[in-house]
């Protein structure tokens, strides 16, 4: 159970984030022409900056691209990349592709769940970590594979999961 101070901290953080998002959104949109096909790149850039797609941002984008809000929301929910809720600062992604599956991805995911105390698709209450199971990062020859930010960790074992996660925590 998260203590209430942690929750408050997270909320303050969220608010702060939303304010910066507002500022950054103008900046982001200024580099686009307002064409419909720009929707996905715009959403990608917003998500890159804010970690997720805040609702007010999606509304602004709809206006900017002259699209119904439902279309923006529809695209935002269709693609696995887009998040509608904030995710953790460190996104731990475990591969569930075929090569990783036959080389023991289930154990790797299980160990990551155990270490972080969350299931795939969830974030820790302090928004430090999110866990995701994604199919294939293209490093299948080094299966099983785990990805944190853009760093790929190959030839994982449960023991190495523990080690790698401990180091991620150490960097904060």
């Amino acid at each position: 159970m998260a203590s209430s101070s942690v929750v408050q901290g997270a909320q303050a953080l969220l608010q702060e984030q939303e304010e910066t998002i507002e500022e950054r959104l103008n900046e982001i949109l200024s580099s686009y022409q307002g064409k419909k096909e720009e929707l996905i790149p715009v959403l990608q850039q917003v998500q890159q900056v804010s970690g997720y797609l805040p609702e007010p941002a999606m509304k602004r984008i709809a206006k900017f691209l002259k699209l119904p809000e439902s279309t923006v929301f529809g695209v935002g929910t269709f693609y696995a990349q887009f998040k509608l809720v904030p995710s953790g600062r460190n996104i731990i992604r475990v591969c569930r592709g075929t090569a990783c599956h036959v080389r023991g991805a289930t154990c790797i995911l299980g160990e990551a769940e155990k270490q972080l105390g969350i299931k795939p698709g969830e974030s820790t209450s302090d928004l430090e970590y999110s866990l995701e199971a994604t199919a294939c990062f293209g490093s299948c020859a080094l299966a099983p594979v785990m990805v944190i930010s853009n760093s790929v960790y190959g030839r994982m074992t449960p023991a190495r999961v523990k080690e790698v996660l401990a180091n991620v925590g150490g960097e904060k």
């Binding site: 064409k35 419909k36 096909e37 720009e38 929707l39 996905i40 790149p41 959403l43 990608q44 279309t71 529809g74 695209v75 269709f78 693609y79 696995a80 990349q81 887009f82 994604t134 199919a135």
Partner: peptide, 25 residues
């Protein structure tokens, strides 16, 4: 164009829908 995480977007008509900025169906 950068994909956004949908296996079905490898299918050619879905891929084109995705380039057009739509749901990749």
């Amino acid at each position: 164009k950068e994909g956004a995480g949908a296996f079905v977007c490898g299918e050619e008509t879905a891929l084109m829908a995705s380039i057009e900025g739509k749901r990749g169906m």
